[in-house]
Design a protein around this nucleic acid. Structure first.
Length: 518
RNA sequence: CGGGGCGUGGCGCAGCGGCAGCGCACGUGCUUUGGGAGCACGAGGUUGCGGGUUCGAAUCCCGCCGCCCCGACCA
């Protein structure tokens, strides 16, 4: 297939995974570098992916009783420094505003790396009684963490995310809240993005600065490396005490409320790319795919063009009757859906809402003046789940050739039945993609019982290693230094099992999940 | 922040003292169209920035800036 004119090929996954990732992000037009070091420009197709997961998560957040709020971008230095561990953890990554209005500021302003301190400061005025609790807030915003090494979506100096902040009268209730946040992340990752995740607790070394403990979901990428996909923190009373938040409880005692915070970022766009993509580019789960179906007309003569257009017109009418719509994104803003004398598949401006449960199929007809082969590759690179080819032969037979992106299998389908089948086909595709990821993870998850085996398996194929760990932080650091693997989580569902730490042989009661990670 | 590499049309590169070029992409036209089409014509540049050497600098020298890759820290 590598004939002359084959120009925009992408690096093969097996040759150079990071190179493949970069090619996909750039060539599928998800994102670009910016004039500012470490920052990224998210392009329409990439932003549509973020909007889809953002909106789905927002529904979970609201369904569980949280309200969206907004807090400012700037955090006064004195506030950021109120919680000792927190400052220490974040200081190296904070960007400061030192001048404004042409003068040096009396007090530097941090550009928020996260908002715990600012929120605690304000909440102390809002919470007086146990009747004011729980306080369940969420903010969608951007944060800045001055990273030394950045990668598009996975780690950028500025990123978009959601940070939930809640306050509770009791520790038990706060602990439940930590799980509510984590469950929302699991649901979005698995049910929406088709990425299986492992829920668990972070080791002390990996706990959020200022938190009592951190729970997280961990996902496996196709190169065998792990990616933290969302974290939920039990803050205890740490930030409340630092800010002086107190409430009068039922027993007439003044107490500090228990806090939680949890976050989910644009990193998940990177996770979606790396969890499903292949050598042809993106493979998108239908739920997040900005386009679920692309129709490619094929013809030679004017006569054939008219016949094919007639066939596609009928199909479009049927699609529109069922609530289909044509996203104004997808790397074909040049009007690929417009053509003379047809329905016009008006592109409209802006991006339609994605993923509403009753929504119809998101589709586009590619009438651009390019060869069919070019279009096949163009849309495969962009991960569109289904492609329908309609040519003269198909028109004569009243059918089309339906191609599934995930395995590029082709099937001849009667056009009169296709539209009614599409919702089911998309659902099946979503399920199959999740199952494929589950199978992949199962094949890449290994129980290892000695340090030699640990290192051998890690080097041979990466993946998730379930190994006994004594619980000692120094042991963990040494394993990391010697193998590059870290404890991703101590999984909640790992069964009690007596064993011995792979490093020092000390007694252990359960296995931790180790992996090399992003 | 340490090590390495690179800055030349939108992208990828060549040119290494003597007229700034090639491929792709882009525009127009014709022929094409079931797996990245062909031909013709065309448009596009302060060679990262500043200084120096020279009759002459993309090219040699000095300084600066930026970016990428690899390592320690991180959603």
């Amino acid at each position: 297939m590598a004939k002359s004119g084959f120009v925009s090929s992408i690096t093969r996954q097996s040759e150079d995974f990071p190179g493949w990732y970069n090619d996909v992000v750039r060539k599928a037009e998800l994102a670009d570098y910016s004039p500012v070091r470490g920052c990224m420009i998210i392009r329409p197709y990439g932003y549509a992916l973020w909007e889809s997961m953002r909106d789905e998560l927002d529904r979970h957040i609201k369904r569980t009783g949280h309200s969206n709020v907004y807090f400012p971008l700037f955090v006064p230095r004195s506030l950021l420094e109120k919680e000792a561990e927190h400052v220490e953890g974040f200081n190296p990554q904070v960007a400061w505003v030192t001048h404004a209005g042409g003068e040096e500021l009396n007090e530097w302003l941090a550009i928020r790396p996260t908002s715990e301190t600012l929120i605690a400061e304000v909440v102390k005025d809002w919470v007086q009684s146990y009747r004011d609790l729980p306080l369940l807030m969420n903010l969608w915003n951007n944060v800045v963490r001055w990273e030394l090494r950045t990668r598009l979506f996975l780690r950028t100096a500025e990123f978009l995310w959601q940070e939930a902040h809640t306050f509770h009268a009791t520790e038990e209730e706060a602990a439940e809240e930590v799980e509510i946040g984590l469950e929302a992340y699991r649901a979005v990752a698995e049910d929406w993005l088709a990425i299986p995740v492992v829920k668990g607790r972070k080791s002390e070394n990996e706990t959020f600065p200022g938190a009592v403990y951190t729970h997280a979901i961990e996902a496996l990428m196709r190169d065998g490396k792990a990616l933290q996909a969302g974290t939920s923190h039990m803050l205890g009373t740490n930030f409340a005490r630092a800010a002086g938040i107190e409430f009068l409880d039922r027993d007439n005692q003044r107490k500090n409320p228990y806090g939680t915070s949890w976050g989910f970022s644009t990193r998940m766009v990177g996770a979606t790319i790396m969890a499903h993509g292949d050598d042809f580019g993106l493979v998108l789960p239908p739920n997040v795919a900005p386009l679920q179906l692309v129709i490619v007309p094929i013809f030679r003569t004017e006569e054939e063009r008219v016949a094919v257009a007639g066939s596609i017109d009928r199909l479009e009418r049927e699609l529109m009757d069922r609530g289909a719509f044509v996203p104004g994104v997808a790397g074909a803003s040049d009007g690929s859906s417009r053509r003379p004398g047809g329905l016009g598949g008006s592109t409209g401006d802006g991006v339609p809402g994605l993923g509403a449960s009753a929504a119809g199929v998101r589709y586009r007809v590619d009438w651009r003046e390019e060869s069919p082969g070019f279009k096949f590759n163009h849309w495969e690179l962009r991960g569109v789940p289904f492609r329908l080819e309609i040519g003269p032969r198909d028109v004569a037979a009243g059918q089309g050739v339906l191609v599934k992106r995930v395995d590029r299998s082709k099937e001849q389908v009667p056009l009169d039945a296709l539209v009614s089948q599409l919702p089911d086909r998309l659902q099946a595709y979503q399920r199959d993609l999740f199952q494929r990821a589950l199978d992949f993870r199962a094949a890449k998850t290994h129980h290892v019982d000695s340090y030699d085996e640990f290192k051998r398996v890690l080097d041979a194929q990466g993946g998730f290693l379930m190994a006994h760990w004594c619980g000692d932080g120094d042991c963990e650091k040494r394993i990391n230094a010697e193998t590059g693997a870290t404890i991703r989580v101590i999984p909640f569902d790992s069964t009690q099992e007596s064993g011995r730490c792979v490093l020092d042989g000390a007694r252990s009661t359960r296995r931790a999940l180790f992996a090399r990670a992003y």
